[in-house]
């Protein structure tokens, strides 16, 4: 069963107001993107800044409404969910944000931050004892001591903050965790620790990760499948090994050559994408954007 299925997601941002009768100008942030995530199969979205990765992630957790396209969580369409069903959906997908210095409210203590994450489970965590127990459990899971609860975010290092942010995202027992550049702002050693932690957490809580990153080295370690995004479109999608060994799309090749010592590829001036391009299955499970 597919955990999360995106079909033909489109999101254009207006950059120029529509004049009378005329057509306004748009940024095609996400353009006809389809993506399937299976339980336990970590997917990575890679691509340069501004290619629409973050927008796509925000559409997935419905922080932004897509212009068109469908999102299905475990086979159920979520576009028009309201009330309790929508809250159920919220619980199943959570996100860890890019900047740990910005994603924790500086006015809240750690306890307060984690308690706020229980908003959707108010009934379950009604009593202080239950809250306390859950919070202890999570702090232990992310390797933080329990005596930090009445500290404020500014008293922590970047890595510690990101652990808190991960703990917060895990409070509601999500099935899919979106990690939006979650390790990019950390130094290499801390990155390594966090990645190890994420692997542990995956085994422990049966999570599925969606990594969003521009760092191919990180992506290689954690993901089973990679989707390369460029100018709002997925240009290539295949298993991790396949992408690294046999990149087909010119943009993927360029990305690889920039990130790791791949066969040097002549830097192309600009990669043009044909407006009618479609993802085509070249080999088994290896999709490339092609006319």
């Amino acid at each position: 069963m597919i955990l999360l299925e995106l079909k033909n997601i489109k999101k254009y941002f207006p950059i120029k107001r529509k004049s009378w009768g005329g057509q306004g100008a748009f940024v095609k942030a996400v353009d006809q993107v389809s993506l399937s995530i299976y339980p336990g199969e970590n997917v990575s979205l890679v691509g340069e800044s501004g290619c629409g990765k973050t927008t796509l992630a925000r559409i997935m957790i419905k922080l932004i409404q897509q212009d068109s396209g469908s999102i299905k969580l475990e086979g159920q369409e979520v576009a028009n969910l309201k009330g309790s069903k929508f809250r159920k959906f919220r619980k199943d997908i959570q996100m860890v944000f890019q900047d740990p210095f910005n994603s924790l409210d500086p006015r809240f203590t750690v306890f307060h931050i984690l308690k706020e994450a229980m908003t959707l489970e108010k009934v379950r965590y009604r009593h202080f004892r239950d809250q306390e127990q859950r919070i202890k459990e999570l702090l232990a899971a992310v390797d933080l001591p329990v005596n930090i609860l009445n500290r404020y975010p500014h008293e922590f290092s970047g890595g510690e903050r990101q652990r808190i942010a991960i703990a917060r995202a895990l409070v509601l027992n999500p099935k899919l965790l979106i990690l939006d550049e979650a390790v990019s702002s950390l130094d290499v050693l801390i990155q390594d620790q966090i990645l190890k932690l994420l692997q542990e957490l995956q085994d422990k809580f049966q999570l599925t990760y969606l990594f969003i990153s521009h760092n191919l080295k990180v992506v290689r370690r954690v993901s089973h499948k990679i989707a390369v995004m460029y100018k709002g479109k997925i240009v290539e999608m295949a298993a991790t090994q396949e992408i690294f060994q046999n990149p087909l799309h010119p943009y993927t090749k360029e990305l690889l050559s920039a990130a790791i010592e791949y066969k040097s590829v002549r830097r192309s001036e600009d990669i043009n994408i044909h407006p009618n391009a479609q993802l085509v299955e070249k080999e088994k499970g290896h999709f490339v954007l092609d006319v």
Partner: peptide, 26 residues
């Protein structure tokens, strides 16, 4: 547009709570 506001939204915190707890205090 702050990430902690987005985080609160994705945790299902309602608008009123976000405005009074995360936006107005700042």
């Amino acid at each position: 547009e702050r990430e902690y506001v987005l985080a609160a939204k994705s945790l299902g915190v309602n608008d009123f709570h976000i405005i009074t707890q995360h936006i107005l205090p700042h």
